[in-house]
Simulated assay, not measured.
Amino acid sequence: MIRPMLLTDVPDVLALLNWMDDAPEREVFSPDARDPRELQLECEDSTCLVDADEDGVNAYCALSPFRDGLVLEGPVSDGGHLPALLRRALEHADGLPVYAFSARDNTPVRAALEAAGFAAMHTTDFYSGPPSLLTAQACAPAGTRISRRLPFTDYRALYRSSEDAWAGRLNWTPEQFEAHFAQDDVRLVALMRGDAALGFAELEFCPEDARADVTYVAVHPAERGQGLGLKLLALAAAEAETHPEIRTLRVRAHDHMKPARALYTRAGLKHCRSVVTYMKDGDEDV
């Protein structure tokens, strides 16, 4: 039976999320919480559905606000009815676009998404390795200096010139920019020539996973082809290594970002996972 998630379903949903965590090929976009109270709080602003029988919950999905529409959490299923669960979830989309994210090897979920009208937008590949792979190269090239702050206008200009799909940051206010980089788990390393910003690398620390994610590397178009991308990656690795709990540096690249993929391979980082981004346009019949 497909129905709204109840408070009494929280332990079963947590067990299902932990089951997903046990195998990389089961990965989908899902709540971060792995604690009953935290999961309850995280679900408060979402439309959450479960497929349940007398033995408990065997599938879960939810819709939450995201970008210009909604994001699908899940579906996570250990024997649930994915097509029916997706149909019920999409009834709550109210004509908005719905995004979904699934491991490339999660064939049951990908088949269900595509049958429900979701179209694959791109694949994001992740690469990782110990920061020590790169720290020997963590120095500023001749004529440049390292900065750990950028003016908001320089950050936005570099971001815009790098042609990434994360365009929401172009709409940030100065206050949002300052609040983001005031967070304890966020760092920025930039290369400057005089007062001109040549590029930056941005990191987010995930100490619970002993990992630092390089969420973005940007090099000004006029400065490309000089090895600055590798220097910025090395500087990010050195920043990660200042935190003893960090054991892994991870980066990402969409399937069209061939220079980034080549950079990560040249740096010695190894491919570790692939995630497919899907979208179902709004105002479609479900």
Rank of each mutant, 00 (worst) to 15 (best):
H254E: 15
A218R: 00
I246S: 06
A222G: 14
I246Q: 08
R211Y: 01
R247Q: 10
L85I: 07
D255S: 14
A119K: 14
E202K: 06
A253P: 14
G143S: 03
D285H: 11
A267I: 07
E91P: 15
N106R: 08
F101G: 07
A15I: 06
R34Y: 04
E25M: 07
L235K: 06
V109E: 08
Q137H: 09
L41C: 07
E239D: 13
Y216R: 05
M257R: 07
A120M: 11
R37K: 09
V109T: 15
D125Y: 09
A240G: 10
T215N: 11
A167M: 01
P174C: 02
A237K: 05
E239G: 14
H81N: 15
T215S: 11
A197L: 08
C61W: 00
G194P: 11
H180K: 06
A33C: 12
F101C: 04
G74I: 02
P221K: 00
G129H: 03
T215I: 05
G168Q: 00
V276C: 13
M121L: 15
W166V: 04
T153R: 11
A262K: 04
R148Y: 14
D285L: 13
M5R: 07
P130C: 02
G194A: 06
L203P: 12
H81S: 12
H271V: 03
L86Q: 09
R104Q: 13
P4V: 00
R266I: 01
N106K: 01
A119V: 15
P31M: 04
A33M: 14
C48A: 13
A218Y: 01
P207Q: 01
T265F: 07
L230R: 12
D185I: 02
T124F: 14
V217P: 12
A89D: 03
A138F: 08
L85T: 07
A260G: 07
R26K: 08
V13P: 13
G194K: 08
M121Y: 13
F118S: 06
P130G: 05
R145I: 10
D35W: 05
L269H: 09
A201L: 04
Q137D: 12
V57I: 03
E54S: 15
T144A: 12
Q226A: 15
R3C: 09
V109W: 02
R261L: 08
G95P: 14
N106L: 02
W19K: 01
L230N: 05
D21G: 11
R26E: 01
T248P: 13
A167F: 00
L133Q: 03
T173A: 11
M121G: 15
V217K: 01
L198S: 10
D35K: 04
L7C: 11
D281W: 08
G69T: 08
L134I: 08
T215R: 09
A120W: 14
H256V: 14
E38C: 06
L49F: 08
D35G: 10
P4H: 00
H256K: 07
A167R: 01
D285M: 10
P151H: 03
G95A: 10
D22N: 04
I2W: 06
E204V: 14
